[in-house]
Design a protein around this nucleic acid. Sequence first.
DNA 1: GTGAAAGCGCTAACAT
DNA 2: ATGTTAGCGCTTTCAC
Lengths: 343, 343
Amino acid sequence: MTRAGSWVPTTPPTLADVAEVAGVSRQTVSNAVNNPDLLRPDTLARVLDAIDELGYSPNRAARNLRTRSSHLIGLRFAPAQEHTANALMDRFVHSLVETSSAAGYHVLLFPGDPEDPTAGYDQLLRSTAVDAFVATDTYLGNPQATWLETRRAPFVAFGRPWDNEEAVHPWVDVDGAAGVELATTHLVERGHQRIAWVGWRKEQVIGEDRRAGWTRAMRSRGLSTTGLASRSDDTVHSGREASAHLLDEASPTGFVCASDTLAMGVLHTLGERGLVAGRDVAVVGFDDSQVAQVVPPGLTSVRQPLEEVAVEIVRHLEGLLTHPPVRGGGVLLTPELVVRGSS
Amino acid sequence: MTRAGSWVPTTPPTLADVAEVAGVSRQTVSNAVNNPDLLRPDTLARVLDAIDELGYSPNRAARNLRTRSSHLIGLRFAPAQEHTANALMDRFVHSLVETSSAAGYHVLLFPGDPEDPTAGYDQLLRSTAVDAFVATDTYLGNPQATWLETRRAPFVAFGRPWDNEEAVHPWVDVDGAAGVELATTHLVERGHQRIAWVGWRKEQVIGEDRRAGWTRAMRSRGLSTTGLASRSDDTVHSGREASAHLLDEASPTGFVCASDTLAMGVLHTLGERGLVAGRDVAVVGFDDSQVAQVVPPGLTSVRQPLEEVAVEIVRHLEGLLTHPPVRGGGVLLTPELVVRGSS
DNA sequence: GTGAAAGCGCTAACAT
DNA sequence: ATGTTAGCGCTTTCAC
């Protein structure tokens, strides 16, 4: 019985099949795949030919069982919130898939149980379904990072452990303050002096961090920030109200926002008042969402280097998964500003 | 040696560990997990207690090896194109993750090699890393579906096999023509008579399908379509130019677009001419992207029922993965119209 | 209803 | 440099 030709699908070829065709032992085939250097060139060639001929690819389950590793990275996939402009996940996931694939890992998606945020992690961990996790939602008070640490689960966080100074897990994050500082400085250089901040509520650590970038940029130029800041929810509506209020009370000529969603609210207000973004008033958002890219006249926005984030995460992951593990520290990346018509 | 208490992580408990604690044999534990009906209630309870106590979860690799199935669904993850408003993937992936998880499957993401679109599929298939695929980019000329069919790989397509009438694989798709018809009728009911179509190039089968919905709605009301159609690339710029041209030549009072991206171009043109969307001219997009949701005054758009799509896909998948497989046919779902300020 | 034996396909350790 | 042996943890016969 041959497998060649136009045969109906059978069970895939195994190591033993290849060994037989190549006239070597199974172990030699295994070595050809995993430690080619151990083989004599001519033996290697013969084995590789056989592998090619049969279309052999090692059975993952068997390999996983033996090596106690799945080469799978778990990622809890939460979708972008509706009615916001925030769609980082899409870009990030793509970068992660690309990068980890290059490193020999695949990405396993699992849903989050809102009731029990650690449930999905626990399940995958105990069943040894994944080798490690990438934790993306490490916001204040989220128990995941701490939980993963106590479980000694290998994981890298996308996001700083804001709330936990004892955290020792590796993380990668983007310097929001630096991004907003970039944005603010950009407006200053465009001649603006009264630049307003449209941000999130005080409880949002990330929002406060971004706000600090605005404060820093303003102060370093000797510009006043008094009466120029507002904080609200991350909705278009809030951005609209906040900017209307700011325009009335403080007559800013520029707005720096904690998100593209809020920036859209600002554009909304400008439109209502017959003001033209980029001509009468400058607006800068955060995240370089698709909205920023397509809304007329184009929204200047802070863009997170998600490709780099993925690269750093995978680098950390590879470190964690070697024997013995190499624990890296935190990595803070700097975003860039994408300038468009709105400024 | 006990595993209980605050012990440092060891290798996870196995079937044998549970068996020992419960005072039964390994098979009985296996049965307790997979065929609880076979056990006597008291034995079952004892085993479940032991499972709980040890925090046992079956080792996936071992189970996969034995059952020759991974309970993993492969999905090639392509990111949303930059500079378009299209971000379906995010919503779809989430729905798929949720639904397949409920059915006991996880989603495995893999990157697409632009050079060789079938490479990733082939690899996963041969290494038996996934049980099935969900193929999302089954556009005209894409070899994936055909390739998967000849390989007899279990897969469900999100998208009709437009180009291949001999295709027998299960698919789920959204009726774009019906969606556009909905949109057009909506404008007619709002009193519009001269409704323009801003679509994609003729080669885009999906675009032609959507266009047919416009034609159908117009003709059924006895409205002329002459001079009211345009076709271009799926970019904001194209939508802008096309709508400018249409306004000059045919004075439409409403625009139905093949995508939110094109609709954004139309909004752009309206803004330039001092026309207000929703008051002077009505605009409808397609996809209900985040852009449609946040752009002022809100873009009316056709929304694909991606949650339902995921449900149908998983239903088909479950059929394919039973023994013997149950091959379903195609499923065509109807989108809905989300009405906002632009109409 | 429960237990014993076998083996899925692979790789680590050792022997040659 | 290549072959032999053993076993990862599980489920599937098949006895009892």
